[in-house]
């Protein structure tokens, strides 16, 4: 049986360690293209994190029907899902779970597919846990409404959402604690 690398345990371990680095160091671009052998980075992340215990929403139809049985995740509405897959070109026209004061981990993890991580005209200035001082991050193909909505969603810590942007080969995370400014303006 020829098993695609993203479903293999050793590849998932490597992808997971890149996720650990990405969430530990917001704005740090993690390249996983080589270890996932041509699969899209977002698919590899889903394969790494999903199983029958997790709920997953796909409001923009990003997931191939054939992948659902392999992921084993329970399909859920976008308002109630622990994980959400979204198309970053489109405005986020939904309200994700933000968690509660008692259980902030129920705030959704949103995987946002975009054209380019680390390139493009949109330059974010980042500060917060995991950022040594301040750093910048460029993103290509992200609808501007995302940053406005995110500011709303993460406005009352510890509630919030954790974003993971990806292109074909790279990942970058913006957990709920990261402060974003664009040309000096806070988001």
């Amino acid at each position: 049986m020829n098993v695609e690398p993203i479903w293999q345990a050793d590849v998932q371990q490597r992808v997971f360690r890149e996720l650990v680095e990405a969430f530990s160091r917001p704005g740090d671009i993690r390249e996983i293209g080589d270890c996932i052998d041509g699969a899209a980075a977002q698919r590899a992340v889903l394969a790494t994190l999903m199983d029958g215990e997790m709920t997953l929403a796909d409001p923009h139809g990003q997931i191939e029907p054939a992948d659902w049985p392999l992921l084993q995740a329970k399909p859920e509405s976008v308002e109630r899902a622990r994980y959400i897959v979204a198309d970053g070109h489109r405005a986020p026209d939904f309200q994700p779970m933000l968690g509660s004061l008692e259980s902030p981990e129920f705030g959704a993890t949103i995987l946002v597919g975009i054209d380019g991580v680390g390139e493009g005209a949109l330059t974010l200035e980042l500060e917060g846990p995991g950022v040594n001082g301040r750093r910048t991050l460029c993103l290509a193909g992200l609808h501007p409404d995302w940053l406005v909505r995110r500011a709303d969603w993460v406005g009352s810590f510890p509630l919030g959402v954790d974003l993971l942007f990806s292109d074909a080969r790279c990942l970058v995370a913006l957990p709920r604690t990261t402060h974003i400014r664009i040309s000096g303006k806070a988001f």
């Binding site: 997971f16 650990v20 969430f23 790494t48 994190l49 997790m54 995991g130 954790d162 957990p175 604690t177």
Partner: peptide, 10 residues
């Protein structure tokens, strides 16, 4: 692993 990523994010 999922718990670790949420722990880092919060």
């Amino acid at each position: 692993r999922r718990a670790i990523l949420k722990a880092i994010a919060i």
